[in-house]
Amino acid sequence: MEPERTTLPTLLIVDDSQAFRVQARSLLEADGFAVIAEAADLASALAAWEETRPQLVLLDVNLPDGNGFALVDLLEADGFRPIVVLTSSRDVGTYRRRLERSRAAGFIVKDELSGGAIRALMESAR
């Protein structure tokens, strides 16, 4: 049943809630993504990014050592353009202004996370 490993989009999950990382990994792996790394804060996210170079980053807005928007800017400044999908359990209205100015592909509220939602944002980011 499982699709060929090489064709799966690779994904880094950055979230300080372990419960969320575990569930998101299960859900997205079932939806056809290869979750190749996880990180709990900005610093380890940067390290994981350097090491694994995923195609996608699923990035929580609120992290213990800063916010997700800062990581988007950091990667951008380093000349990297991964497709970053920001996520939060707060609604999109909370971040509307910063999302408009950010180079992130988009925003998905956590309880509506799905492979389909990420693919839709990947499409629009192309």
């Binding site: 569930q23 859900l27 079932a30 359990s89 707060r90 956590k110 799905s114």
Partner: peptide, 22 residues
């Protein structure tokens, strides 16, 4: 609330969807 209960319920809702998919 955001760091606690909200995160747990969100994780739970994703877990239910994982079950549904499986």
């Amino acid at each position: 609330l955001h760091d606690g209960a909200q995160q747990r319920f969100v994780a739970l809702s994703i877990a239910l969807r994982v079950v549904r998919t499986r």
